[in-house]
């Protein structure tokens, strides 16, 4: 297992050194959220009502943007070949890389969400719920996204394709993420949607690395 954390550590260090990828994702998040009021009209009541949905959807898109690179750079520079010859099963290699993506991209996006909530007139009471559901829900974003990244590694038009493949898989996370926020703000019991959101993330942590490893294996032949 120690190879696992070595790999996570390397990917995080690379993310910090390169910096650009996270900056681009955060910038994209900001721009998409800022564009929506321009398109929908600046009705603050309307914006505050749909703010959780906007923030979640824009977060999914921003995370998608950076997912394409998860395996690509290791594939292009030959690192993936060497990673495969290590003592770590490929399933754990993909898990490590998805975990590094979650820490380096999904979590910062989730932390930026409340700041963007100000632009959308989101009620202050909703902020803890927003960040909490995002932290709980985003592992599914990174780990299911890894499947798309692995499947499109050698495909033409990889960037667009990954969105088509992965966004439908994000539907449960999106629905329960929003449901959990509404439950926290409203009279409903918050436990069921939050527990289901957790279950989806845990399921994704199992399914994602398995499928991504299978996809990588076929492409490395």
């Amino acid at each position: 297992m120690s190879g696992f954390f070595t790999l996570v550590g390397r990917d995080l260090r690379l993310a910090v050194r390169q910096g650009g990828a996270l900056g681009t994702a955060l910038g994209f998040y900001l721009v998409v959220v800022a564009m929506l009021p321009l398109g929908l009209g600046a009705d603050l009541k309307l914006l505050s009502r749909i703010a959780p949905g906007i923030l979640w959807i824009a977060l999914l898109l921003s995370a998608l943007l950076s997912l394409g690179r998860v395996f690509e750079s290791d594939y292009e520079d030959g690192s993936l070949d060497v990673l495969t010859t290590g003592p770590l099963p490929l399933e754990l290699v993909t898990a490590a890389k998805a975990l590094a993506h979650w820490i380096s991209t999904s979590v910062p996006l989730a932390l930026l969400a409340p700041v963007l909530g100000i632009l959308l007139n989101l009620e202050l009471v909703a902020y803890p719920a927003l960040v909490a559901t995002m932290i709980i829900g985003t592992p599914a974003v990174s780990f299911l996204g890894a499947i798309g990244a692995a499947l499109t590694l050698t495909a033409r038009r990889g960037g667009l394709l990954i969105a088509l493949l992965v966004l439908p898989l994000y539907v449960p996370t999106l629905i329960f993420g929003i449901a959990a926020i509404s439950a926290m703000l409203g009279p409903d019991d918050v436990a069921p949607p939050l527990l289901i959101l957790t279950a989806i993330s845990l399921g994704a942590i199992v399914l994602g690395p398995l499928a991504a490893a299978a996809a990588l294996r076929t492409q490395m032949q």
Binding site: I147, L151, A155, L165, P168, L169, V171, P172, I175, F176, I178, A179, P193, I196, I200, G203, L207, A211, A214, A215, T218, Q219
Partner: peptide, 25 residues
């Protein structure tokens, strides 16, 4: 063929979950 097969299997695992979540929402 292999990559689409992986995607199809991921899809069939996710489909009931998607259906459930859409019903819930």
């Amino acid at each position: 063929s292999k990559l689409t097969a992986i995607l199809a299997l991921v899809g069939i695992v996710m489909l009931p979950i998607i259906k459930f979540s859409v019903d819930w929402g």
